[in-house]
Design a protein around this nucleic acid. Structure first.
Lengths: 123, 123
DNA sequence: CCTATCTTGACAACGTCATTGTCAGGGTTC
DNA sequence: GAACCCTGACAATGACGTTGTCAAGATAGG
């Protein structure tokens, strides 16, 4: 599983409908719609207006979940952080994970995000 | 010394007691103590345990006020932002102000760099 | 000495927020 | 036709930010 190296399996490819996406991030569909209303994530839409989340969208949402649940940051804070990330180039948040995983064993392993390991939520 | 031109006017010099500091940032003394409990600011203390805020402390607090009141960020978010700033070296927050002046010109001249700029919140 | 201000700790009120949940009326998918 | 999606609304729950006060004691300055 998780063998995604096919070119056609782009992480930006919209594939998950909201119920699946919600399951993937352990949140209520309602919550995902709220994130979208708040401008924190922008899933693609089918020609008939159905939301489709890509792998990147999922990762971005996992960032939001991490920041809000583990760090106690509210959505306004998440917005500022994303805004900052967008302005300062890329992954500045990744720096947080190094500390977020508490424990000083400088393991070169992946920051171990909520699940797969966060990658910059570039939209 | 490599210090500023005037040791007497060092921005790190502790001078304001809590009531004065509270007035300067338009907050209740209680609020400043909370900021300290949250580890967001660390004013110096006299040998007899009285809090003394420096100009830098004041600026740091003004940042907190701006982020919380104008941006809606909670204290947990402020903590993450400060942490990020500390880790990424310099004033990353300053970037926010460039955009912060967009939309509503709330331009809080106080917090940002009316004098020297955010001057990394230091500790 | 006296009075104002400081200290910590507790408790509370007020408004806001994050999240989940549901109900409605209607469209889409298979 | 059943299961899912859409938007919009309303609400409950728990937590947070800020201000405010009360207490009992230490400190500063005239």
């Amino acid at each position: 599983m998780s063998a995604a190296r096919r070119p056609d399996r782009d992480a930006t490819r919209p594939v998950y409908v909201i119920s699946v996406a919600a399951t993937l991030v352990s949140a209520h569909p309602r919550t995902l719609r709220i994130y979208e209303d708040e401008g924190l994530v922008s899933p693609a839409r089918t020609p008939t207006n159905i939301r489709l989340y890509s792998e990147e969208d999922i990762r971005r949402i996992l960032w939001i979940r991490h920041l809000t649940r583990d760090r106690g940051v509210n959505l306004a804070g998440v917005r500022v952080l994303f805004e900052l990330e967008e302005r300062l180039g890329k992954r500045i948040l990744e720096v947080l994970y190094v500390e977020g995983t508490r424990g000083r064993d400088d393991g070169p392993r992946e920051p171990a995000g909520p699940e797969d390991g966060p990658a910059s939520p570039g939209r």
